[in-house]
């Protein structure tokens, strides 16, 4: 087996960068597997597992309670979204190790996600606005006006030519 420790940082940058940044040069021997740092990390992983399981159980319980007993939809959905974000946060931070990266890299990954804020608001508002138009504008194509209008409506006037 080739010993990775014989490489220099300069040659690795042009060659196998992964060796440079995955910690093989600095620490982590097989002998440290039972060490305190390793055991601490494993127990952290299991703690997060427990947390994810508890959050999922809470979600399912509220879903079932809401189904059989009825819970205000706004309250219920707010709770579901908060719980989902909590799960996503811990999966990304601990399981994907984003919490262990440099702060500027974390920012680089998370900043583009801010676009989702406008993305969600704009598209849901659009959907809601269409529903509002369909239900309030009598010329629109909905169930009630459709019955009021004769089955065979006169031929549509040709659309004006595009300017």
């Amino acid at each position: 087996m080739q010993n990775p420790h014989t490489d220099t940082a300069e040659t690795l940058y042009e060659g196998d960068q992964s060796k440079l940044y995955s910690g093989v040069l600095a620490h982590h021997d097989l002998s440290e597997l039972k060490g305190e740092a390793s055991r601490k990390q494993v127990s952290r992983i299991w703690k997060i597992t427990l947390l994810l399981a508890i959050v999922t159980i809470l979600e399912v319980s509220l879903g079932l309670y809401g189904h059989y007993q009825g819970v205000h939809v706004g309250v219920r959905n707010f709770f579901f979204i908060i719980m989902t974000i909590i799960k996503a946060f811990y999966i990304v931070k601990v399981f994907m190790h984003l919490g262990d990266e440099f702060k500027n890299f974390v920012t680089l990954v998370l900043i583009p996600l801010v676009l989702f804020v406008w993305f969600i608001i704009a598209f849901l508002a659009d959907g809601a606005h269409w529903l509002h138009m369909n239900q309030t504008d009598p010329t629109r194509f909905d169930n009630k006006t459709e019955q009021a209008v004769p089955a065979k409506s006169p031929a549509k006037t040709p659309a004006p030519a595009l300017q």
Binding site: A9, L20, L25, E101, F102, N104, F105, L108
Partner: peptide
């Protein structure tokens, strides 16, 4: 090598080249 690596990663200019500013491959 560990010393060498720490010298390389301790360069004052993060974006001067020769290493990843994010310490990620």
């Amino acid at each position: 090598t560990a010393v060498n690596l720490s010298e390389t990663t301790a360069q004052p200019k993060a974006w001067a080249g020769g290493r990843s500013p994010f310490n990620v491959s």
